[in-house]
Design a protein around this nucleic acid. Structure first.
Lengths: 107, 107
DNA sequence: TAGTTTAATCGTAAAGCTACGATAAACGAT
DNA sequence: ATCGTTTATCGTAGCTTTACGATTAAACTA
């Protein structure tokens, strides 16, 4: 697999890196865990649970949404966030490929 | 699980985020795949395979080493890199916990 | 309609990431 | 000893991330 400047990396590498970046902050991991256990969650509850300002949490939520791991649905004045099944499935798939290609060869 | 300013996140969240950050660049994912398939690898071979300057690749290798996912062993004037079993195992463990706590609840 | 609640966005400061060329350090070979 | 090879490190530019307070926008509530 030779790489050139125009075809820098495979799309799987690029996409997995993108998803990994979304997980690259403890607050965002905490948010995902929270959404999984409570099944869905009003934005305010997430803010209350995290040791971060409302604006910062909103920013983290936006990142998770942009990358496709969660989605938010407006519910009156509030916003209800939940996991985005499509994104989670994609992450699982790309991860298990890495698991097979990398981890399995090692341990 | 209430969080305070002194105990911001759990150590698992923090460590997984750290490992995820190491995966948050396609070049570093490519490096891990390369080390897995070739089993071990002279630094120069990695540089040749990637569309990046030597200094940049060296920087990516350093990050992977610092986080514990690879190790490098000096072999004359060259350096031979390989996966670090301990770090890979840790990543698998933290990942499967996330898989159980998050993914399984969703799909 | 006025006031309150909720969440996104704006503006911004500080820190970190990514890339590269240039340089230094370590080693083998001549 | 000197030279070429190999890799790490330095210095630096440009961009991104993270954090927060302040503000805005939207939607209930009295």
């Amino acid at each position: 697999m030779t790489r050139t400047k125009t075809d820098l990396f495979t799309s799987d590498e690029t996409r997995l890196a993108e998803l990994a970046k979304a997980l690259a902050h403890p607050a965002r991991i905490a948010i995902l865990k929270m959404l999984a256990t409570k099944n869905s969650c009003i934005c305010g509850e997430i803010v209350d649970e995290l040791p971060l300002a409302q604006a910062t949490v909103s920013q983290h939520l936006k990142e998770l949404k942009n990358v496709g791991l969660i989605k938010g649905e407006i519910d009156g004045p509030k916003v209800c966030y939940c996991l985005n099944e499509d994104g989670i499935k994609e992450l699982r798939l790309l991860w298990s490929a890495l698991e097979a290609n990398v981890m399995a060869k090692c341990c």
